[in-house]
């Protein structure tokens, strides 16, 4: 507004105070995500290996069978990764007592990972419905879409549940926060989930192209996009912590 050159006519400008970010922070106390995510152990890039493995295993020849197989592999890997994540990030509230109760900690971590995996598997029908609402085909391909939903919920929901320790209240407050994007981009796990969604969304783009490639079959590009996004997001989130 200050750049308006005065030209000798009267004008009225009403200034309204724009709520800036700092003010918003004052209104809503800043939300943080529990845990530390600086350990390089968080970067095993297993997703990359799985998706490459799926393609090598003939994803383009028989998508459904390979995807079911892949979902089982992903389930196993996510269980291990979830445990690593849970331990390394120390998202537990009783961080300071870690030394003393090593054995109890182990079982609690395992329990947490198992519950999180179970809940994320329960989430698959929701993922399926969302995929259909976004335009997944309804005639045929239902099984493929469902398996894609399994993959996605394992990749997106399970890590989130682990780092929030099944604390939905906190997850809700993060989603509600005005600085949700800042939070997402500075946390590898959140960032990975976010990019997984984004990657799947962008995964539909190559399907209509008339290249007649086998990988243009229905869920393959979405799956690859999801996995790719997951890896990319993890990297971005990991690096941006140090920026």
């Amino acid at each position: 507004m200050s750049l308006v050159r005065p030209r000798g006519f009267k004008k009225t400008v009403s200034f309204t105070v724009q709520p800036t970010e700092s003010q918003e922070e004052e209104i809503h106390p800043s939300v943080s995500i529990p845990g530390l995510y600086t350990s390089p152990l968080l970067l095993p890039m297993h997703h990359l290996l799985i998706i490459i493995g799926l393609f090598k295993d003939g994803l383009t020849q028989n998508p459904l069978r390979v995807m079911v197989k892949g979902a089982l592999v992903l389930l196993a890997v996510q269980l291990v990764y979830g445990y690593v994540l849970s331990v390394v990030s120390g998202a537990d509230s009783n961080k300071e007592k870690r030394g003393k109760k090593q054995s109890r900690n182990f079982s609690s971590h395992v329990a947490k990972v198992l519950v999180a995996t179970l809940v994320s598997l329960l989430f698959t029908p929701v993922a399926f419905v969302v995929l259909v609402l976004f335009g997944a085909p309804l005639y045929g391909y239902l099984a493929e879409t469902y398996i894609l939903g399994v993959h996605l919920s394992l990749m997106i929901v399970q890590p989130l549940l682990i780092i929030f320790g099944m604390d939905f209240e906190q997850l809700y407050s993060v989603a509600k926060s005005a600085t949700v994007f800042k939070l997402i981009f500075t946390n590898p796990i959140l960032c990975s989930s976010f990019f997984c969604v984004l990657g799947t969304w962008l995964g539909v783009v190559p399907i209509p192209l008339d290249w007649d490639r086998p990988w243009q079959q229905w869920p393959i590009t979405l799956l690859a996009g999801g996995y790719g996004g997951c890896v990319l997001g993890l990297l971005i989130g990991y690096i941006s912590q140090y920026l």
Binding site: V130, L133, F134, G135, W201, P208, L209, D210
Partner: peptide
Amino acid sequence: SNSFVVWEDKLILLFISTVGFSCLY
């Protein structure tokens, strides 16, 4: 791309449902 022009109807749905889901969020 001619392919996207051909499949424009599906892309529009993707856009619209994205708006819908963002509103939901």
